[in-house]
Design a protein around this nucleic acid. Sequence first.
DNA 1: TCCTTCTATGCAACTCGTTGCATAGACAAG
DNA 2: CTTGTCTATGCAACGAGTTGCATAGAAGGA
Lengths: 188, 188
Amino acid sequence: MALEHAILVSLLEKPGSGYELARRFERSIGYFWTATHQQIYRVLKRMESDGLLEVREVAQQGRPDKKEYSVAGPGRAALSRWLHEPVEPESIRHELAVKIRGAAFDDPAGLVSEVERHRKAHADRLAHYLSGERRDFTGPEAPLPLDAGRELQHAVLRGGIAYERMTIAWLDDVLATLHRLGTARPGI
Amino acid sequence: MALEHAILVSLLEKPGSGYELARRFERSIGYFWTATHQQIYRVLKRMESDGLLEVREVAQQGRPDKKEYSVAGPGRAALSRWLHEPVEPESIRHELAVKIRGAAFDDPAGLVSEVERHRKAHADRLAHYLSGERRDFTGPEAPLPLDAGRELQHAVLRGGIAYERMTIAWLDDVLATLHRLGTARPGI
DNA sequence: TCCTTCTATGCAACTCGTTGCATAGACAAG
DNA sequence: CTTGTCTATGCAACGAGTTGCATAGAAGGA
């Protein structure tokens, strides 16, 4: 049920509609948790009927009406309860790693373009994170003050940046390995 | 359907039963893909009825009989097809990161023990990976030769090692941030 | 002897997550 | 004037993954 908690955190940071939440899950929250709009709408409805959230119909000009959700008392309590119980250390699920091991039974050299594609995607994500970091935290235009919430957001973003840097370095390592297998000892 | 492909790779590396696969998913394959035994048994059955795998009943002494699965021709073809089509770069799902951002609305200092617990889990996993690396790849007792399959397995393991090191460093960063928030500016 | 652990397989029920599709008003480009 | 994009919400069906439970023989310890 981590999606519920991610939604509670996001709505505490700023109330918003399902649509707005979906967009946040493509950006900041999406650094460490993903969700599609269908999932979000479904869970929002359930959370509201469970009394964790409050809705407010908001009429807009030039746009469809929206339902703005905010966290109700029981929602805050549920988040607090969850924060005080342990969660399992996450385990990774990395399809590309499956492919890399599988390449031994096919054509290792054929994997190069796929690995390069992933490397580019991670480099793009890193650039995106870094520009976000400058904009929100370290740049001269970054808003002040840095309260606890923003400090913690920054710490999480630093984790995303470290993850992308590590992944890029690893993919370079993988590319070097594939290159070595393709040239030094062909046919093995 | 990445579980299917992970199973194909694992069975190509070495045929085995559902039980044995479940154990591998706790170790080497589990470095980058996880699955429970129920999931594995269900998928094995489906893959066999789809003709991707072959079964062989094996009687054992002092143990229950087992069904040893191995990859059939169509299974190898399915893996090859998958290797040649692109997969999406993975996105992380990190509950602890949700907690860290959520802590701003509760008690940041209360999170310290949880982060320390995660740090220890990652340090244990790193130690486990490193001893596996010495045993299988870099140590004086490591078996030879290092063919393409083992080179690629090693590359994936290096990815796991890099991931754990990065995560430990990040959690230290988070702990320092929590400490800073708890002492320098209490109450903010 | 009983209790636990290990090997080995599986069902049933449930929740979580994805994919495809549908609706509908506003706005911009061609 | 049609096509496409953006905001905004949602249903239905399916597939992936989790949790709890059940069975059963063999081995080992209290």
